[in-house]
Nucleic acid binder design. Structure first.
Length: 450
DNA sequence: GTAGGGTTAG
């Protein structure tokens, strides 16, 4: 498991086929000390990098954009606001894709109104198109819908002409997703009708959402009927459509029918993809049918399909849930060696939690180490269960290692967790003062624990 | 950009 530095997205990558641009003025060969300071600060602390940038004279788009992304990822929103004000006042040119990316970050941080505010302020920036693009608009709709602002999203959809935009199928699909989550199938159907009245054609995604809703309601013939309807309209089901249908069958306990559909789809002119196997694998996992899971993997190999990281994470997840940690570990190694799949944070989490569950805390610690080295950060709960396990086993050196890693990541235990940790440690070692002081010397890092 | 197997998000 080789650690790899995470790439910083600058939004500046150009295709080799894109037109050559005017050559920029020659740059000095050696970076200035100020630039060096900025670079090293940016590598460590985006907030420090901001202060350097605001006081530097050569703040250009690349520097600003990469710092904006870093601040957004670190969720340092006050700093991000300051940088946006700076970019606006300096008339630094910026692209619509930058605004889209920031809107997505605001959405993930549950700040839909911040996303809305940024969208409205786009014309005040030196933005390449001068106004928001349909892409940016659709991202904003999604930010609202994903955060439960259904009425705002519908309102905005009706007002798109004010921004010089014409809503497309994606805009309606996003709003339909919102209605589906709030009002179910019938609500979604209202958006579907509205779409039709306004002359926007449904897409395969539109139908996939309706089919999914029908399947979740257990209305399998309705789901199949929708598939026929789309074909009649010349909208062709894709592998995702079949995956959604198969999932419907599985959730009604019809695994065999789902599997048959996976074979039938090929005859209906749609190539089976990994996602279709994923549906079957998950259903087998829920029923702890590991033999069938193995058979599915063999079938994939027979078809020369490469199991991806998700397929492996399904398998590992259920092996861990069933306490079959030796097998899970084998699969973890196999996915990396045989397929070159990099385990995701989720897979590492499953493995650490799985080892904790069977009380093999040292093996859990080994996985945690690999996880940290590969640049993933465990959840607080994962850290917690590992620590309490190690404390129970009296492995204080390891506990301190884990606590130090938490401190590095500004993760803190709350007061209650500290109490239980200290209680356990003292209980284990008859109130050993040394252990107690080792533990309490760790800094409180949550900020307001007192 | 929106749907989809795993999920902490990407």
């Amino acid at each position: 498991m080789i650690p790899r530095a995470r790439k910083i997205r600058t939004g500046l990558r150009r295709s080799p086929l894109s037109k050559p641009r005017r050559r920029p003025p020659p740059q000095p060969k050696r970076p200035t000390p100020a630039l060096n300071a900025l670079k090293s600060a940016a590598a460590e602390d985006p907030s420090a990098a901001l202060h350097h940038l605001l006081s530097s004279s050569n703040a250009d788009y690349p520097a600003c954009a990469s710092l904006l992304y870093r601040l957004a990822r670190a969720r340092l929103f006050p700093e991000l606001d300051a940088l946006l004000l700076f970019i606006r006042s300096r008339r630094i040119p910026c692209s619509n894709s930058l605004f889209s990316a920031l809107i997505c970050h605001f959405s993930l941080a549950s700040l839909p109104h911040k996303a809305l505010h940024l969208f409205y302020s786009i014309p005040s920036f030196n933005c390449s198109q001068g106004s928001p693009s349909l892409h940016t608009f659709n991202h904003l709709l999604d930010a609202l819908v994903s955060n439960g602002c259904h009425d705002e999203s519908r309102c905005l959809l009706d007002r798109c002409s004010e921004f010089g935009l014409r809503a497309n199928h994606v805009s309606y699909n996003v709003v339909m997703k919102g209605r589906l989550s709030r009002d179910g199938y019938d609500g979604a159907l209202q958006v579907f009708d509205q779409m039709h009245k306004r002359g926007v054609s449904p897409s395969v995604v539109t139908y996939n959402m309706l089919i999914g809703a029908a399947g979740r309601n257990g209305e399998l013939s309705k789901a199949m009927g929708l598939k026929e309807e789309m074909v009649k309209k010349g909208i062709y089901p894709n592998a995702v459509t079949y995956a959604i249908l198969m999932k419907g069958f599985c959730s009604s306990g019809k695994y065999v029918a789902a599997k048959k559909l996976m074979f039938d789809m090929e005859y209906q002119g749609c190539k089976t993809q990994v996602v279709n196997f994923g549906v079957l694998m998950s259903d087998c996992g829920r029923r702890s049918d590991f033999d069938e899971m193995k058979a599915l993997l063999a079938e994939m190999r027979l078809r020369k399909m490469k199991p991806d990281d998700v397929i492996y994470s399904i398998l590992i997840n259920y092996l861990c849930e069933n306490g079959r940690m030796d097998e899970a570990y084998k699969v973890l190694v196999e996915m990396q060696v045989k397929e070159g799949c990099k385990p995701s944070a989720a897979v590492y989490r499953m493995m650490v939690d799985g080892f904790c569950k069977v009380e093999e805390f040292e093996k859990g610690l080994g996985i945690l180490n690999a996880m940290l080295v590969s640049g993933h950060c465990p959840r607080l709960e994962t850290f917690g269960s590992l620590i309490s396990g190690l404390v129970n086993g009296g492995r204080m050196e390891e506990v301190c290692f884990v606590l130090e890693e938490m401190v590095k990541r500004k993760l803190g235990l709350d007061l209650e967790e500290w109490h239980s940790l200290v209680d356990t440690a003292c209980g284990k070692c008859n109130g050993s003062g040394e252990l107690f002081s080792q533990l309490t010397s760790m800094v409180f890092v949550g900020g307001d624990e007192g």
